[in-house]
């Protein structure tokens, strides 16, 4: 049995927008295991991103418990959350969020400079097959390339978890495959626990585990007996 990396129990999140309370999470229980790649599916507003943000230390829960290994994520302070992100978590977003004034290599170095045991930035770029483009600025790269730089940046510190919020959302299918391949490569080679939010249901086939979200809850969970490679998935 592989070790539990994340454990959430009865997690809720309520936002107040003006006078309206939006219940983004209505009691979520889940477990993510070491080295697994999980895919989270569900319509917009079903709570996927909120959960990911809480697990990644970007947001706090209204009630319930969330734990990363031995670290209780619910109830700790801002500074601890920052350190948690710095040392344990890698993020990939739909809109890359690269620093425009730094080259690909420098964007990765930004993280390796503050990490405890990072890989070399070049190595991280090689992992996402971008070794050749390391001296280009974001404005000089395609969307897919930028997203792969973002992945390289996220994994360069050898994070224990990689959280991806619609990493292929802004990309065409061909480019999306390249990005997913980068993710599976990282997951396989570095044994990084990975969670990917997507709107593309076919993507579930590359995962170990699939969570279906509905209305702030996890409606069901599937474990894939047979996984596909990204290029085998039909889009």
């Amino acid at each position: 049995m592989t070790a539990t990396v994340f454990k959430a129990e009865g997690l809720t999140k309520t936002y107040l927008t003006g006078d309206v309370a939006v219940h983004a999470l209505r009691g979520v229980d889940l477990e993510l295991f070491e080295g697994e790649l999980s895919v989270m599916l569900g319509p917009s507003g079903s709570g996927k991103s909120t959960l990911l943000n809480i697990l990644g230390g970007l947001d706090t829960a209204t009630s319930g418990l969330a734990r990363f290994k031995d670290l209780q994520l619910t109830g700790i302070g801002e500074h601890e959350l920052t350190l948690y992100r710095r040392h344990h978590v890698g993020f990939v977003f739909q809109f890359y969020n690269l620093i425009p004034s730094l080259t690909a290599l420098e964007n990765v170095a930004l993280v390796t400079e503050i990490a405890d045991d990072p890989m070399r930035p070049e190595e991280a770029l090689d992992l996402v097959a971008l070794g050749e483009r390391q001296n280009h600025f974001p404005a000089q790269m395609s969307g897919g390339e930028q997203q792969r730089v973002a992945i390289a940046r996220a994994i360069a510190k050898r994070p224990e978890v990689l959280l991806c919020d619609e990493p292929t959302g802004a990309l065409d299918s061909k480019t999306g495959v390249l990005v997913l391949e980068a993710l599976t490569t990282v997951n396989r080679e570095l044994n990084t626990t990975t969670a990917v939010i997507t709107h593309n249901a076919e993507t579930r086939k590359i995962a170990h585990r699939v969570f279906y979200f509905h209305d702030g809850r996890i409606a069901r969970m599937e474990v894939n007996k047979q996984r596909l490679e990204p290029h085998e998935v039909k889009w």
């Binding site: 710095r86 993020f91 620093i99 930004l110």
Partner: peptide, 16 residues
């Protein structure tokens, strides 16, 4: 703002 928020997500502290 975006750049700075990205850095915060990456684990940079407010001071940094």
């Amino acid at each position: 703002a975006r750049e700075l928020a990205s850095l915060r997500v990456l684990g940079f502290t407010r001071a940094e």
